[in-house]
Each structure stands twice: as structure tokens, then as C-alpha cells.
Design a protein around this nucleic acid. Structure first.
Lengths: 114, 114
DNA sequence: CAGGATCCTCGAAGATACTG
DNA sequence: CAGTATCTTCGAGGATCCTG
């Protein structure tokens, strides 16, 4: 069975689409540093609405990349962390983030040049 | 100057959003193998419309990641290839694509489990 | 505090048709 | 062949209010 990202009807393409969006990348990146509470995450990630955060977390959770844990202690809340499967995403995600951080200047320069 | 992908107003975030979408990833991945003509690209990448392909290429081009070359010879046409800057994106992109190809089964399993 | 539900809008993206 | 132009639709996503 082929899993070529070039094939439209292939599961690998679906998988790629699942993670290849900016919010997922940023959320994974944040959870890669340490588990976060919901409010922490929203505070950490600038400009994400509660709706999008919840939606993104739920999507990742449904696909086994993130798990939620209830916190009974005061103050009560939820904690999110990467699953082992989710942690395998850290390398690609960090690679992307690193690239973005390092090449932003070059991109801006190229934009001005052309 | 900070380039933290967590900050909403930071250029690095904009950069990340530029490339963190499925079409860009797939297009970069394709061009990473070899230069392609427009029609080749569309054929290669299943399910992408001319509009989206043109749009994606233009965006990447405007940011100095891809360059277009006119082909005068018969049959005439255009050829797209990665710029040196664009090639620096190959590692992250391949990393992502590899992950998607390798972990699709696991994702599907997780989806069923929960 | 961590969401679910609802409403609404605006832009992404398909379809189609035309051009150098 | 490699696009551009136009129109339209459809759903992502913001704003707001409500609940366990």
C-alpha cells in the first residue's frame, strides 16, 4: 500500500493536511517544551481564539497526538501533553519552526528584492 | 529582535504561516526532486486546481523560495525550480512528509481506538 | 477555568471561460 | 501550454453568550 503525499486519495495526504497548518505546528511546538494548561497555552500562543485552540487540541487529541488530563487539585483545570506518538512529531515541527525563525530575514529581503 | 513563533505579531509567525499549509509543503516537496513544468506539477500533485497551483507558486516565488524560468524551446512553457533559499526548506519539508508517510497507520489506529 | 453552542461574516477555493 | 479573470459558494473562524 502506497502512502505517497502526492496522491490525492492517499491517507498520507490526509495525515499531512492534519498537521500542516500553522496552529497545529505552534501547539505541538508549545507542548513539546512541557505540558500546558489550557489557559497557559492560550496565553503562550499569541492571537489564537479559544475556539481555534479547542478545535486544534481536539483534532490532535482525536488522532492520538495529544492527551488531556484533568487536574483535580486547586486550581482545577485541564492539562495537555503530547502522547508518545505526538512526540515523534517534534523533530519535523522543530525543524520547521527553526527554519522559520532563522530565515525570516532572508524572506523579507527576497520579498523586497523582487 | 525576537523571532519567536509564539508571538502573534512576530515575522517568524508570518513566515511559518507562509509554508505551513499542505499545498506549499507538497509543492516544495515535488520541486525538491527536480524542476517541474507547470503541467507536470499539476499532474504530479493530485487534486490541485490550476488556481491553487498558480497561487501557491506565486506566493513561494514572491518570497524567494521558487523561481520561474521561461522555456523557449518546443514545446514552450514554464519551468519552476527551488531557489537556494527554497532548498533550505527541503529538510523540514521532507521531515514532515516522511513523518506523514510513516505514521499514517498509527494515526488511523489511534483514531479508531479512542 | 475550560470549554460547548450559536450566529455571522468574509475570504479561500472551485468552476468556468477567456488569452498570449 | 500556462496562465488570468470573474463569479459564486461554502466553510473556517471570530464574537458572543452560556454551562459544568
Amino acid at each position: 500500500m502506497e502512502h505517497d503525499v502526492f496522491l490525492a486519495d492517499c491517507p498520507a495526504r490526509t495525515t499531512l493536511q492534519l498537521i500542516a497548518d500553522a496552529w497545529s505546528v505552534v501547539v505541538i511546538h508549545a507542548l513539546g517544551q512541557r505540558p500546558h494548561r489550557y489557559a497557559e497555552l492560550q496565553e503562550r500562543i499569541g492571537g489564537i481564539s479559544k475556539k481555534m485552540l479547542t478545535q486544534t487540541l481536539r483534532k490532535l487529541q482525536d488522532n492520538g497526538l495529544v492527551e488531556r488530563r484533568r487536574i483535580p487539585a486547586a486550581p482545577p483545570g485541564s492539562e495537555y501533553r503530547l502522547t508518545p506518538l505526538g512526540e515523534t512529531l517534534l523533530e519535523p515541527v522543530r525543524s520547521l519552526a527553526r527554519w522559520a525563525e532563522q530565515n525570516t530575514e532572508a524572506l523579507l529581503a527576497a520579498r523586497g528584492a523582487d
